[in-house]
């Protein structure tokens, strides 16, 4: 198709993505497209699908997705940067989501987060140098009666105490 990309000067030529979609990803996206009344409707699900496969959504992944779906990169990135759970930077093997909602804070949540930071020696949003952990506090995880809580590896940890944090982290070490 005679797109404007082809007609303009080299500066705007989009780099060929070095990571194209795997056949599994392509199948998943085809499936999404078949359900959605309009193409754009798949954007969030497609981004989540890519992230599930790759851990995060890189620029190259965005281009690959755009190339496959014909949704403009700017549209994909506009949506990707809007949502909390789409990671546009690489994350560690385990993403720790300690709750920073008010109910957890009332029960000492802030202290838990502080301890996590100290033990991992990173601040919120950072990844440990060994690439094991990324710390991303999330607001109210909806388990306020069990406060303070944390989500990691799709698992909810309730009534977290500072004492059990080292053990908790080490179980992830074993898993990963």
């Amino acid at each position: 198709m005679a797109t404007k990309e082809q007609q303009t000067i080299p500066v705007s030529v989009i780099e060929t993505p070095d990571i194209s979609l795997s056949s599994k990803e392509q199948q998943g996206i085809d499936e999404l497209i078949s359900h959605s009344p309009q193409l754009a409707g798949i954007t969030i699900d497609a981004l989540k699908l890519i992230q599930a496969e790759r851990g995060w959504v890189s620029d190259a992944s965005l281009h690959a997705l755009s190339l496959y779906t014909q949704i403009p990169v700017a549209d994909l990135d506009s949506v990707a940067t809007f949502y909390n759970l789409i990671f546009r930077q690489p994350v560690g093997k385990v993403v720790l989501h300690p709750c920073d909602g008010i109910s957890c804070d009332l029960m000492g949540g802030e202290h838990i987060r502080q301890c996590l930071k100290q033990q991992l020696n990173i601040t919120a949003g950072e990844t440990t140098p060994d690439n094991r952990f990324t710390l991303i506090p999330l607001p109210c995880l909806g388990a306020c009666d069990k406060a303070p809580v944390m989500i990691a590896n799709k698992q909810l940890f309730e009534n977290v105490t500072t004492d059990e944090l080292p053990k908790l982290l080490s179980t992830f070490n074993e898993v990963s």
């Binding site: 404007k4 989009i14 700017a74 940067t81």
Partner: peptide
Amino acid sequence: DKDLNVFGSKSHLYFGRAESGVLQ
């Protein structure tokens, strides 16, 4: 046209392209 958009949210909005380049 599709190559300009808004990125981010809250008070950290960014109006531009997905990456530097000539507006189409």
